[in-house]
Amino acid sequence: MEQNAALRSHLTDLLAARQAHCTFPDAVAHMPTGRRGERPDALPYSVWELVEHIRRAQRDILDYCRHSDYEAGEWPHDYWPDTTAPSTPTAWDESVAQVQDDQEALCDLVADETIDLYNTVPSSDEHTYLREAMLVADHTAYHVGQIVTVRRQLGLWPPSGDAE
């Protein structure tokens, strides 16, 4: 396999494939509706807060890669939800779907051979597409691990198809 194609393949796998740990869909599978906003003792976040943070941060980086007029949000307000639980089951479903849609969009961006992964993104003179893809993969993996930890503390890991 040619080096550029191999790099793109490795990056898309890093973003979306099950490799050394579970994926985002694995981590959120069968999360009981009534427990999505529950915080275990001694942990400062719920599964909902982590899912929504992943969604917001990933979307922010996707926008950073796409738009030359990108402006960063206000930290931490624009990157973390204001509530520990989703307002409705639909809000949960939409957030989870958006994480997966934006992940797919990032994979498409990485796979796009018209984009040189070593070039800087349109809104930066120092950050490359390669850096941003690796940043999303690293950030998401970190918080997916936290989701698993929260679920373990709540007695909800491994996920059960009967949990809802």
Score class of each variant (00 low, 15 high):
4 N>Y: 01
6 A>G: 11
7 L>E: 08
8 R>Y: 04
10 H>K: 09
13 D>F: 05
14 L>V: 00
15 L>S: 02
16 A>M: 12
16 A>C: 03
17 A>V: 06
17 A>I: 02
19 Q>V: 05
19 Q>G: 12
19 Q>D: 08
20 A>H: 12
24 F>T: 02
25 P>F: 01
33 T>R: 10
38 E>Q: 15
43 L>M: 13
43 L>K: 13
48 W>F: 06
49 E>M: 14
56 R>Y: 12
56 R>G: 11
59 R>G: 05
64 Y>D: 02
65 C>L: 07
65 C>D: 04
65 C>I: 09
68 S>F: 05
68 S>T: 10
70 Y>W: 15
73 G>C: 06
79 Y>S: 11
80 W>Y: 13
80 W>N: 07
82 D>M: 07
83 T>E: 10
84 T>E: 04
92 W>P: 04
93 D>T: 14
94 E>Q: 15
94 E>Y: 03
94 E>R: 07
95 S>N: 04
102 D>N: 14
102 D>P: 07
104 E>D: 12
105 A>D: 07
107 C>Y: 03
111 A>G: 14
113 E>G: 14
114 T>D: 13
117 L>P: 10
120 T>N: 15
120 T>K: 12
121 V>D: 05
122 P>R: 09
124 S>D: 12
125 D>I: 11
127 H>T: 15
129 Y>V: 11
131 R>T: 05
131 R>A: 03
133 A>P: 01
135 L>D: 09
138 D>C: 03
142 Y>L: 10
144 V>H: 01
149 T>D: 01
150 V>P: 00
155 G>I: 00
155 G>N: 03
157 W>S: 01
159 P>Y: 03
160 S>V: 01
162 D>H: 06
